[in-house]
Design a protein around this nucleic acid. Structure first.
Lengths: 243, 243
DNA sequence: CCGCGTGATGATGTATACATCAGGCGCTTC
DNA sequence: GAAGCGCCTGATGTATACATCATCACGCGG
């Protein structure tokens, strides 16, 4: 049995590695991945690689075209609006469904992330920021025992997260935007740690909900300076005239 | 391009066929699927079949074990509690996120489903009931334009739906339970059609939410007659003492 | 007679040869 | 010279041979 799950462990390793590269823009949108190259790098054949690529394609990070190649998808903020809307709602559920009172170790890890975030103010770095954001997300996911919710949230998170780096990297005032985001992120972490210390996971969910919504609004404003208010409005579902 | 998507179309066809068989218990839990048999049936080789099986495994409907076989998972109601909790919340979102005003055709299809449901009272049939339930679900999904929400809801639906047939089939008062469920389902459809006619999709979401929650409660009660109230209570998240 | 080891069997996992397809380069022709 | 046709290349999709693993039956030994 130790060997029986070896294949699955390798699959998971390759899968996470590639997903990380895509989301950190090591593989930027439009980049073509050759199955044989990946097979060589991970010391295996095309077959297991293809399984990983198939899953990444199911999740919308890749697109395989017969005769052309396997290409990292290029996603515009407009296409991600629905994903963000869903993420906003799911964020709140993390504190509602099967909340797990965090132990001392988890709280300590939150504090360490905050320390790394504060260090980031002195020396801003987009990649480190993205990594921090990712680790913070995974820590948040440990606050719910609802496994399906965790899986789905993770999937949606990885569909949207690389968009920030992409938008930022081709922006004129790249440095200002990064600093701005870092400060927002620091506030989110501080609020989250405070809520955890109080022991109210529902509040953690609300904080996360707010920041996901605001993060999207800022990205949307960058992409469509004219339609700023429109993007913010559409995140809040239209109030139905009944009720 | 017509041929380029031919492979994808076949994949989708095989995938949906197998998923349907699993959820209608044509492939009951524990059933072993041989890749070569499936390859022969669908006139292809093991390779495309394996891609389909991999996806079904990702979604929790199958489990492949090296040297043993590919086995339909056996899921107990207890393991599905988290999935149901999530489904309850997502049901409401269908009416909230990007609601699509149904056209005349959609409303007509809802009415046709209701007619088939009423015919079911005269001649109860578990399989037809399951099919109806499935088609009703897919129609409901057309009421939201939020594609990620649709995908996720579909995934969770197929993880839970076969559990009803399984529970019912090995029950003593199988016929009574079936009739009971049919009547609940008829009420849900009638309420839904009424809400659609009024044009309030939020209400449709609430109706669905209620029925998903009640459906789980009934199943849970069947499985654990002693802990009935426990199951119902745990579906409603504990009210936090703050706020 | 019971228990343990070993080999046969048949399944999934892997590697690889082959089929198919899209795009680009170059030749031909008008 | 430009446009169009066709071949060539390299990619993914498919089929299949082979490796690995788990199970069970059989036989040997205690």
């Amino acid at each position: 049995m130790s060997n029986g799950s070896e294949a699955r462990a390798r699959f998971e390793r390759i899968y996470r590695t590639l997903r990380r590269r895509i989301c950190l823009l090591d593989y930027p949108p439009g980049r073509r991945l050759r199955e044989e190259d990946l097979a060589e790098e991970f010391k295996t054949s095309r077959t297991p690689i293809r399984r990983v690529l198939a899953r990444l394609e199911d999740e919308g990070l890749l697109r395989s075209v017969h005769g052309v190649g396997t290409i990292v998808t290029d996603i515009h903020i407009d296409d991600l609006q629905q994903v963000y809307q869903l993420r906003v709602e799911l964020a709140e559920l993390v504190g509602k469904l099967s909340p797990v009172p965090p132990d001392r170790r988890t709280l300590e890890e939150f504090r360490q992330l905050m320390a790394r975030g504060e260090a980031l103010v002195a020396r801003p770095d987009a990649r480190e920021f993205a990594r921090l954001n990712m680790e913070f997300f995974h820590l948040l996911m440990e606050l719910t025992a609802n496994e399906p919710l965790r899986e789905i949230s993770e999937r949606l998170y990885y569909q949207t997260t690389r968009n920030w780096l992409k938008t930022a990297s081709r922006l004129a005032q790249y440095r200002e935007m990064l600093m701005n985001e870092i400060r927002f992120f620091l506030r989110e972490m501080a609020d989250t740690v405070a809520a955890i210390e109080i022991g109210d996971l529902k509040v953690v969910g609300h904080i996360r909900r707010s920041h996901v919504a605001m993060s999207f609004a800022r990205l949307y404003a960058e992409a469509h300076p004219a339609r700023q208010e429109e993007g913010e409005r559409s995140l809040r579902p239209a109030v139905s005239r009944s009720s």
